[in-house]
Write a protein that binds this DNA or RNA. Structure first.
Length: 585
RNA sequence: CGGGAUGUAGCGCAGCGGUAGCGCACUUGCUUUGGGAGCAAGGGGUCGUUGGUUCAAAUCCAAUCAUCCCGACCA
């Protein structure tokens, strides 16, 4: 392709709203352009890269047994109502109505739609397993679109859904998808870290995320420092284990209230008493429309909202209001504790005064690391007072302890139980998980088993963000001059800089352009009437793997200049040497 | 949704009571021509929108919309 046919959209200025390298450079190099918050135009080069990733994904999905289909972007509300997610998905799901006031969603994901398709044609266990996938646009009204292609409101996703007669079959497909994902990211030249993950509100059990390590990553990953162990996990999922709480002596002594005045925070009270934050019981209180959730954890740690949310079974929740806290503890916020709490787990608490008297169910959760401890300091459920010498088992009892805390670097690996964890940040580009029967049951998908009895298939679900893959490829591969593409993703293999003047030189360039193409090499010929510097700069900005320069010097020496974009290495080659090099012979 | 900021030419920005400016880009001409050319001449903005204050508003006030940043969602 020639620049005179397919123009460059490069710019000298960085867009003012770009915060990260991939966004800044993709915009400046003319691959993408923002049209609205979280909405991007793919310009010619951007679209070409996007299509290459799609094709890689498609080939690998097909190779590992996927069956491609294409579902409508707009999904009927009744499917979402069947699964119960019409109300759960919240504002993130964009909704619309047709002229008859029938509701629809702009599909943020397609479990329901795909399960609906499956039940329309699956009748026998003999048709299982089957892995249906599509590559198409998804819409999510993100709270905060960010980082260019990394967090958009419209994005292309490959989403696959597998259906199985039993767990062994699901396991087999899950393993195949793990292989497929490794192959896909490998071909894209992306280094990914597969980690154990939380399965979120999709439901299900086993789950693995494919992460690209990056400082701008929105996920925290915990990796076991012992490579032999090899444990890797998303913080949301990582079980928190610490030895810091087990080694302490049993502290006896009578429990007593003491006046802490206006001091509420653990730091403040610790200063007053001289105690360490780890000897405090921190109370964190949330509520949703129907529940109040009180979590007690060691004072030096932070609650994992994801763990709390999964445990409590809530989705749309918030930090408890002052009124709610008063209703539960009888005190101002800042003095909640497990001892002398008016209510117990499961009680109904009035959060509004009579006569309305709206009631919510109280849930109380304790963290594992409070079990068996004594000498603790906790809120007294009495304004201005805390309790000291609190002992679990005597002053309050934990019947069921949970994992409620965010693990961090320095905590103990939950797999080998020995080595410490280290932390890194990551961007999620792919996610595979075992869904189980959540959707097949809700949507009444059944097939007949060998005995002629109905069988509800179990499901798996596998996603890849295409735009995100493109953006992270650049996050990993760029320099101050611009983009650096892997040859499998680059719009063209070669950027041919023509510095030709006059007919003879132009004829030489045209011939070389034709020759390279005849050898199956994709070439972008910069035949613009621009100065050399402009072309060199654009060549480096757009980031194709090879930059070939032809001008007066070439005709004089007979040698063609080749520059490798990534390393900057230069070669002077004959035409046949050049072709061999470009073809990787 | 809470906290912070910004909307002025295609892009990046200045101007912050007296009627619109800079760099890049664009158009034309001449020169130049292997690392973002020089000179000259041009074109382009109801200053996000609406309302108010004022003799006078891009500038002050209010509302509204949009965008971005910091926190809770996800491929």
């Amino acid at each position: 392709m020639r620049a005179s046919q397919l123009p460059l959209f490069t710019s000298k200025n960085d867009p003012s709203d770009a915060q990260v390298a991939s966004h800044r450079l993709l915009a400046r190099a003319g691959y993408i352009r923002k049209q609205g918050s979280g909405l991007y135009i793919y310009l010619p080069f951007g679209d070409m890269v996007h299509r290459k990733i799609v094709e890689i994904v498609r080939e690998e999905m097909n190779r590992f047994g996927g069956v491609e289909v294409s579902l409508p972007v707009i999904t009927p509300a009744e499917l979402w109502q069947e699964s119960g997610r019409w109300d759960i998905m919240g504002k993130e799901m964009m909704r619309m109505h047709d002229r008859h006031e029938v509701g629809y969603a702009l599909g943020p994901t397609h479990e329901e739609a795909m399960t609906d398709l499956a039940r329309s044609f699956l009748q026998s266990y003999k048709q299982l397993p089957i892995n249906l996938y599509q590559i198409g646009k998804k819409y999510r009204d993100e709270i905060r679109p960010r980082y260019g292609l990394i967090r958009c409101r419209e994005f292309t996703m490959k989403d696959a859904y597998s259906f199985h007669a039993d767990d062994a079959s699901l396991d087999a497909t899950y393993q195949k998808m793990r292989e497929a994902y490794r192959a896909i990211f490998e071909r894209c030249g992306l280094k990914t870290i597969p980690v154990e993950a939380d399965s979120g509100n999709m439901g299900g059990s086993g789950s693995e995320e494919f992460m690209v390590a990056s400082q701008i990553g929105e996920e925290t990953l915990l990796l076991c420092s012992d490579e032999a162990c090899g444990y890797r996990s998303n913080q949301e999922k990582t079980e928190f284990i610490s030895a810091n709480y087990g080694l302490q002596p049993i502290v006896s002594g009578a429990i007593e209230d003491f006046d802490t005045g206006e001091l509420k925070t653990i730091e403040e009270v610790a200063q007053l008493t001289g105690g360490a934050p780890r000897d405090f019981i921190k109370a964190v209180i949330y509520e949703d429309a129907a529940k109040i959730i009180v979590c007690f954890i060691p004072g030096d740690r932070e609650l994992s909202e994801v763990k709390m949310k999964n445990l409590a079974g809530v989705n749309d929740y918030w930090l408890a209001s002052e009124e709610t806290i008063k209703a539960v503890t009888g005190a101002e916020p800042g003095y909640a504790g497990p001892v002398d709490l008016k209510y117990k787990d499961g009680d109904a608490v009035s959060v509004t005064a009579p006569p309305t008297g709206h009631k919510k169910t109280l849930r109380i959760f304790f963290d594992n690391h409070l079990k068996g401890r004594s000498g603790l300091i906790a809120g007294a459920n009495r304004t201005h007072f805390h309790k000291k010498n609190v002992a679990e088992g005597r002053d309050f009892t934990i019947t069921e302890a949970h994992d409620l805390i965010n693990a961090h670097a320095g905590d103990i690996c939950p797999q080998c139980k020995k080595a410490e964890l280290t932390e890194t940040r990551g961007i999620e580009v792919g996610h595979i998980f075992k869904l189980g029967k959540k959707y097949s049951e809700k949507m009444k998908l059944t097939v007949l088993d060998p005995n002629g009895k109905p069988l509800t298939p179990t499901m798996g679900c596998y996603g890849i963000g295409v735009g995100r893959t493109m953006a992270t490829a650049i996050e990993q591969n760029h320099d101050e001059r611009g983009l650096v593409w892997h040859k499998n993703l680059s719009p063209f293999l070669v950027y041919l800089v023509s510095l030709a003047k006059g007919d003879a030189e132009t004829a030489f360039v045209d011939k070389l352009y034709a020759t390279l193409q005849a050898h199956g090499i994709s070439v972008y010929l910069d035949d613009r009437d621009e100065r050399a510097g402009v072309k060199f700069n654009d060549a480096e900005l757009v980031g194709f793997p090879f930059i070939v320069t032809v001008g007066k010097k070439t005709l004089e020496s007979g040698k063609i200049e080749l520059k490798l974009r990534r390393s900057g290495e230069k070669f002077e080659l004959s035409e046949s040497e050049l072709i061999a090099k470009l073809r990787g012979d």
